[in-house]
């Protein structure tokens, strides 16, 4: 489960996605509105007029993508938060960041 569900009236911007590596820093866009609700969140991208829902895991991943943490840092944070094995954390983080990058709400900078 990627933790990202898209809805709303607009189409997400498809960005070219280069291979995500452990040292890649995936920064979330500062201009995307984030509204926490319970343990989840709703995001609104004003550029594409698209609304997204993040479940609990997706919201956590979004928060950890602060422009300083690498992919590996995010994986370790998820492992610590949810007490999951590394393979599960890598799968979840990789899928979520991949989807977020595809929709344009997150960027990926290589180290």
């Amino acid at each position: 489960m990627t933790g990202v569900e898209r809805g709303g009236f607009g189409e997400g911007v498809a960005t070219p996605y280069t291979a995500i590596g452990a040292a890649t820093i995936p920064p979330r866009r500062a201009d995307v509105l984030c509204v926490p609700i319970d343990d989840e969140a709703v995001l609104y991208d004003h550029v594409t007029d698209t609304t997204f829902r993040l479940n609990e895991t997706g919201f956590a991943i979004w928060r950890f993508c602060d422009g300083r943490n690498t992919m590996n840092d995010v994986v370790e944070s998820i492992r610590a938060t949810y007490d999951v094995d590394e393979a599960t954390a890598r799968d979840d983080v990789g899928a979520a960041v991949s989807e977020m990058a595809r929709t344009g709400i997150i960027g990926c900078n290589g180290a």
Partner: peptide
């Protein structure tokens, strides 16, 4: 359903959502 899911669904059935946009999301939340 989760409240975040409810907000997403409500944006889809709000006729004039485009007039409110980010403010509409905050209001529905």
């Amino acid at each position: 359903v989760s409240r975040a899911d409810a907000v997403l669904r409500l944006t889809r059935v709000t006729f004039n959502f485009r007039k409110y946009r980010a403010r509409g999301v905050e209001l529905l939340a």
